[in-house]
Design a protein around this nucleic acid. Structure first.
Lengths: 327, 327
DNA sequence: CAGCTTTTTGAATACGTATGCAAAAACGCT
DNA sequence: AGCGTTTTTGCATACGTATTCAAAAAGCTG
């Protein structure tokens, strides 16, 4: 960084003051056509770029947004990250990536977010404990939970209409003539799990059906175990709804390995519509999130000076059923 | 950010000077046990964290490292990103995520990297043109190409021993009794493609075999197309080596959909060992990158004040063959 | 305890930029 | 040309921290 080109040097070359150089690079400042041209030429020649550190220091605001991820277990998230970075870039923000080892945001991660006074935080694949939520509130850092809800945290949530989607899936399966049902879930406490379970079982009940519920943890391996278990214990049902596509693959593979045919012997539905769902070994019926709109809304909430600091609400957005070969 | 707690406030509360507060938070500065305690107490009480903007401004160096990704097409990269963030966090660095739309780093991305004067850049899934490389050099920003080589760019590269690995794969297939071979490649110009192609065909030639070469672009879809093409044109060989696992899945699925059995009728090998390769529909034999060591070396090169600015060399690290069910 | 060395401390300064303020320039109008 | 108005410009300052320098405090030795 010792090689830094400063606004002063540009000013000297252009024959103007540092203030003028600054104004050229500050949106909404008034500069004459002529000096703007001189400054831009000089800046180009020297390869000048405003120093973000000095800029953020003086303006007292950051052009960084923190993106908190847990892992890469589910390809759904990298995809959403891409959307976020693209949208934020358009608005002039850069992305500070926080990758937590644990489910929980760690102190060191919070430190990073606070040290850079990020303009906002998107929590994508980790949970925010009350403690974390308090921390964010205390320091007035706008935060949005993406694809998850933490009741009582007071943080904004942007999520898919999980409950209604699960109801739709239940109706679909009933419509296909299924009469016995299994739900394979995710980590206990995860809002996606809770909401989808609720919608699915309630809708089934409404139509007079029960539902077998199996525990899981959002992984392929857990899906496979559950699938195998279903067969080996002889408790296979007409239909299986998995809380995520990733788990559905595991279930499908366990079925396939044991000679069970989908959809002839059992209908299978997932959730997320990640890329592999359209691959031929799966060709999975699933429910697609409105990722674009979820991302847009998240950013809107985050960057709105009023709404961002209001008490958090939960925003559910409708997605769409994708019918493929497993139903 | 209006709510910023400053070192001055901490100093006042602790009854010391701002300098002392700074020293407590600066590694390697000398402070007495007593004042350190006073300062830490006050800092804790106020929730003080050093402002990174002021800090980077005065020290003239950044604790940000840029991570440049293109997309999420290949699950290999998100996985490597995780490793990078974890390792960098240990060393006190945070990650600025740059997600380019295009194959090429765009000006806006470069701007961001320069505005933050990042301590280094890891280019993971995009290519650096000469122009980009020049830019990075001009501004003395250390850069490492991860899993790719751009000859003549003068940038450091950290890559898997592609050529030798491909040779090993060729020998494996020959050892399995294969006598005709197909290589399904990636985007033309991609170093992984070029190196793996070279190693594979050369080793085959050494043993007196030829090799059919098919074009690709690293995607599942291209793999599928190639697999279908192989069958339908009647040019199926004893063995197929795909430049990445992702392409191998496509090929496998095209075979499966057409009743061709792997490995009985054709042996199939991929490259990368991403998670899905161990899933039961694929159970793919492949070659695993030494990702941990690649990441460690990349960071070492990046942060070493001497080596980082030397002329770039190419570092090839050996991985390991993973034998599964497709060979 | 004097005299010396070492450690710790605070005052002052600089990093590169944005911005309030007042001066200067440009413009509009009679 | 002269005056009032608007636009543009430069000066000076502040953001929050690390660091130099000199002064003060603390150790050490005999």
């Amino acid at each position: 960084m010792e090689n830094q080109v400063t606004a002063h040097e540009v000013a000297k070359l252009a024959g103007v003051s540092q203030s003028s150089v600054s104004r050229v690079f500050t949106k909404g400042a008034s500069v004459s056509k002529e000096t703007r041209k001189k400054v831009l030429e000089a800046a180009d020649q020297l390869g000048y770029r405003p120093n973000e550190y000095a800029r953020s220091l003086i303006t007292r605001r950051s052009s960084l947004v923190g993106l908190v991820m847990k892992g890469v277990s589910n390809p759904y998230y990298p995809h959403a990250v891409k959307k976020f970075t693209a949208e934020l870039k358009k608005k002039g923000y850069s992305v500070l990536l926080i990758d937590t080892d644990d489910v929980e945001l760690q102190m060191q991660d919070i430190d990073a977010l606070l040290s850079y006074h990020v303009a906002g935080v998107v929590i994508m694949d980790a949970t925010a404990s009350f403690q974390t939520a308090e921390m964010l509130k205390r320091f007035r850092i706008p935060a949005v939970l993406f694809n998850r809800v933490v009741p009582g945290s007071g943080l904004h949530s942007v999520s898919c209409e999980n409950e209604e989607a699960a109801r739709e899936i239940a109706r679909l399966l009933i419509g296909r003539g299924c009469e016995s049902f299994t739900y394979v879930g995710g980590r206990e406490g995860a809002s996606t799990h809770i909401e989808r379970l609720k919608g699915f079982t309630e809708e089934l009940k409404k139509h007079g059906f029960g539902c077998q519920v199996l525990p899981g943890d959002f992984t392929y391996a857990a899906g496979y175990r559950n699938g195998a278990e279903l067969i080996e214990s002889g408790r296979l049902t007409d239909a299986v709804f998995a809380v995520t596509d990733l788990m559905a693959y595991g279930i499908y593979d366990a079925f396939r390995d044991r000679g069970i045919r989908v959809p002839e012997q059992v209908k299978l539905v997932g959730f997320d519509d990640i890329e592999m769902s359209s691959w031929s070994p799966y060709n999975l019926s699933t429910y697609v999130h409105p990722v674009d709109r979820m991302v847009a809304l998240s950013i809107e909430l985050l960057l709105d000076p009023v709404r961002s600091l209001e008490d958090g609400e939960v925003h559910y957005l409708p997605g769409e059923m994708i019918l493929r070969g497993t139903t």
